[in-house]
């Protein structure tokens, strides 16, 4: 589904991603861990099409399509979703209007008719329940005045509404208490299917107790330097990242 080969990317001439490789197949859950400044959030920004970053080398294929040829909204319409680490507040734009417009533009991209009002409302009801999001919040402006937990729930709610093929969760666990973490994780797990995939970017192992990854990767200095199964996450939690840095230095 997602195939990243020898990716190099920079911001303002500073190289952040330095030859990254990653293969994600349908039905899989991948976790990307790594110390601060390793390039985790940069990777998610680049995948979503943030134009602040320049891809200088390598390729990113999504279902065989070259992502760098696609604008941010086209990536979304192709089925890529980024749950933001810091969802922005957009005063004046109502959640419902925003979501409906998003769904309809994606539908139009795919040559489908706009969603019927009734179907949309039914979907909102169903999906907001999934992440235990108070429906009253949806009448308000996008993320405005939402607590940290509500913002993250709203991200997963949007993901549920848009039904992406590939979801990238960027530090979704940051700022969540244990109850919110459980709710958000349940939501993500409920959306899992053999035809979609999830990439979880996280600092801590904690989230991975709830969202069980098939693969764990360590991102360090712009590259994936180690890959393994969920046991690797436990090892990182216990020993930190220094041993990996040392391994790299001696290699």
């Amino acid at each position: 589904m997602l195939s990243i080969k020898n990716l190099h990317a920079s911001i303002e001439d500073k190289e952040i991603i330095k030859g990254l490789n990653l293969e994600v197949k349908a039905g899989e859950v991948h976790a990307i861990m790594g110390p601060n400044g390793a390039g985790k959030s940069t990777l998610s920004s680049i995948l979503a099409g943030n134009e602040d970053y320049e891809v200088t080398k390598g390729e990113m294929l999504f279902d065989g399509k070259d992502l760098s040829e696609l604008g941010t909204e086209e990536r979304a319409a192709e089925g890529l979703f980024l749950a933001f680490q810091y969802p922005v507040e957009i005063p004046g734009v109502s959640n419902m209007n925003f979501l409906k417009t998003a769904i309809n533009e994606i539908r139009s991209y795919r040559g489908e008719a706009p969603i019927a009002a009734k179907e949309f409302l039914k979907m909102v009801k169903e999906k907001s329940k999934l992440v235990e999001l108070n429906p009253d919040l949806l009448k308000r402006y996008v993320n405005e005045g939402f607590s940290g937990g509500e913002k993250k729930r709203n991200e997963i709610f949007q993901m549920a509404m848009l039904e992406p093929k590939l979801a990238i969760l960027d530090e979704t666990d940051s700022g969540l208490d244990i109850d919110a973490l459980r709710v958000v994780s349940n939501g993500v797990n409920a959306l899992k299917s053999p035809s979609n995939a999830t990439v979880v970017i996280t600092h801590y192992q904690r989230l991975l107790d709830y969202i069980i990854p098939d693969f764990v990767h360590v991102l360090y200095d712009g590259r994936i330097v180690k890959s393994g199964t969920k046991e690797l996450a436990l090892e990182l939690e216990e020993k930190g990242y220094d041993w990996i840095k040392e391994e790299l230095a001696t290699a």
């Binding site: 604008g71 941010t72 909204e73 979304a76 957009i90 734009v93």
Partner: peptide
Amino acid sequence: YLRSRGLSEASANNMLVGA
């Protein structure tokens, strides 16, 4: 943010101007 959810640049612009 709006574009990452599938809104075209034009409609994201309109939405923000409207807001």
